[in-house]
Write a protein that binds this DNA or RNA. Structure first.
Lengths: 102, 102
DNA sequence: TAGGCTAATATCGCTTAGCGATATCAGGAT
DNA sequence: ATCCTGATATCGCTAAGCGATATTAGCCTA
């Protein structure tokens, strides 16, 4: 895998957990949102990732039809929120460590 | 893979790039340092990772003997530093996004 | 100087993630 | 009914991650 992806796939998942903790989010919406943050994530990665997160109880889903299109909306579970908390903490820790001070 | 690892392996690599940009670091040293930061990373992951980073020109290595033991020291290359810069930026971006404000 | 000891690094074998490309699927329009 | 479009799913391959185990280099002891 290319390093750039490799370094940031974790970031992407944290973004997902965060957004789904704030509101219901669909795959497409996430796709655009992530692009906005500089992450190009293909459907072949995104959708399996969402399902995996759901399978592992970090997300729950509910499908429905909107504007003539089937959509699946995700929300972060309690377990996911706990993971998100940990991620916040680790991210701060990382920044504190690697920050340049000069 | 367990989510906890999954989310943070990128963090680990960023740590590595950072430390090796500050000073020469060996596998063992990194192992202890990472543990200090809460990352339990096994030799079966760490050493292949270092070699991979070297192979992809993010690190350079130089082996030598110290206190009776063979060690391999790594330093971050220009390319690695560039990746590190990007990582700093993305990490800030992540924090700004997922931070709780209440 | 052969043998064994220890610490550092490397490899093996397996499972599973990531991903580009392609397929499927539901609803709306004609 | 058929076609179109946009959202989600699957396939097939490559390679990452990892626990367990092996290897390696130098030191020590007698």
């Amino acid at each position: 895998m290319k390093l750039q992806r490799d370094l940031f796939l974790g970031f992407v998942k944290i973004h997902i957990l965060y957004h789904a903790s704030q509101e219901e989010v669909s795959g497409v919406w996430l796709s655009t949102e992530l692009k906005r943050h500089g992450y190009a994530i293909s459907p072949g990665t995104l959708y399996p990732t969402l399902r995996k997160l759901e399978k592992d109880s970090y997300l729950t889903s509910s499908g429905r039809v909107e504007q003539g299109h089937r959509r699946i909306y995700y929300r972060t579970t309690a377990r996911g929120k706990k993971a998100l908390e940990k991620a916040r903490h680790q991210a701060h820790e990382l920044i504190d460590e690697i920050e340049e001070w000069e």
